[in-house]
Computed example of a mutant assay.
Amino acid sequence: MGKFNGHLYPGLYLFSYGLYQATVVFKAIIVNDSLLCPSCPFKNKGMWARLWGISYGGWVKVVTGSILTVYVVICLDDGMVLMNRKQLSRFMYPKEWQHLTMFILLTLNGCVDVTSKNLLRQRCVILEKGTLLLIYCVLLMLLVSHVQGSTGVEQRVHSLLIVVVFQLMLVLAVELWAPNAFLLSLIETFLFLMMGSWLMQAGFILYRPVTGYPWQDDDVRDIVFVTVFFCWHVMINALCLLGIYGISSFWHRCYSPSLKMTGSKEAPYHASPEGPVYKLLPKVERSEKDEQVPLLPESSP
């Protein structure tokens, strides 16, 4: 699991989660909705309203973390052995145990999200954000120990990943005081995309190079191009966010019924001339009375 698949599958999940989170954030920005409590389009619809309130992101974390945990256990022939039976003082499979710890934390994070959103009487956002922050603090420590003993290309690849995880940890810490900030959520989404895409790239760099030739640790040019590829990932993910925003904006402006309904309701409100009409009506009535009063004595003889 510590080889190619250990980088590809978690990276694919993180990148997919970043894409989903980007659509959620951009929808809230375009519709001017809340990130924490999005409005439900199915009001008083019973089953549809309950389905809308399900924590799909939490369940995806639970299922993905459980599958990856089982995969780590069964991918080893001897199983997840902590110590060697012949040499009790020797720990076995340190990197696999690190991956197992990461995936168990992902499963626990999903359980917290489901509990907070669907089981508690009132959603506790601080609990969700605090758990996610704690998980990435542990992930940062695991990654720092993961690069022990590595040199050259592998050390540079994981060092750049550590930079992304550290920045994400800082953003999650600030979100404890501002959980509904759009800018912080956008930065968090971008960092999730960076983690996912760079993990997949790390699998190809370290274990399955596209060119078919392995990267050389003693070649300075290979180490330099690792950083160059990381910078390309920064630009590509930024363009990906820009494209998602354009597609989301076009979709919600043209095909979203909620925006059309709100637009049709707001248009007559702004163009409503109720104020001036109510001020003019008493004047019209008084003028009619004034015209009728002098006519009565003339017609009486």
Rank of each mutant, 00 (worst) to 15 (best):
Thr131Tyr: 01
Met83Trp: 11
Thr107Ala: 02
Val31Glu: 12
Leu8Gln: 07
Phe15Pro: 00
Asp78His: 14
Arg208Ala: 08
Gly2Leu: 02
Gly243Tyr: 05
Ser159Arg: 07
Pro273Leu: 03
Met102Ala: 13
Phe166Thr: 09
Glu274Cys: 13
Leu132Arg: 01
Gly246His: 06
Gln155Trp: 09
Cys37Gly: 04
Met80Leu: 15
Ser272His: 11
Val73Ser: 08
Ile67Glu: 01
Thr131Gly: 05
Pro214Gln: 12
Ile135His: 08
Ser55Ile: 02
Met261Ala: 15
Ser197Phe: 06
Gly149Lys: 09
Asp290Arg: 12
Val72Ser: 07
Asn237Ser: 12
Lys45Phe: 06
Leu191Ser: 07
Leu172Tyr: 13
Asn237His: 06
Val81Thr: 13
Pro273Gly: 02
Ser287Asp: 06
Gly243Ile: 10
Thr189Gly: 03
Lys260Arg: 09
Asp217Asn: 15
Tyr93Glu: 12
Gln98Met: 15
Tyr56Thr: 14
His270Gly: 02
Leu12Ser: 13
His270Thr: 10
Leu120Ser: 06
Ser145Glu: 08
Tyr93Lys: 01
Leu161Met: 10
Trp97Pro: 04
His233Trp: 05
Ser299Thr: 10
Gln155Ser: 09
Leu142His: 04
Tyr136Arg: 00
Phe225Pro: 00
Leu105Phe: 08
Asp113Ala: 03
Leu239Asn: 04
Met169Glu: 14
Asp290Tyr: 09
Leu35Trp: 05
Ala271Val: 07
Gln122Glu: 14
Ser258Trp: 08
Val112Glu: 00
Val153Pro: 03
Leu76Ser: 12
His252Lys: 04
Leu170Cys: 15
Leu183His: 13
Leu139Met: 11
Leu241Val: 08
Gln292Ala: 13
Asn5Phe: 12
Gln98Lys: 05
Gln167Ile: 15
Met169Gln: 08
Val25Met: 07
Ile67Gln: 02
Ala181Phe: 04
Ile104His: 00
Pro282Gly: 13
Pro301Gln: 13
Leu176Ser: 01
Ala202Asn: 01
Met47His: 09
Asn32Trp: 01
Met92Lys: 06
Ile54Lys: 04
Asp290His: 06
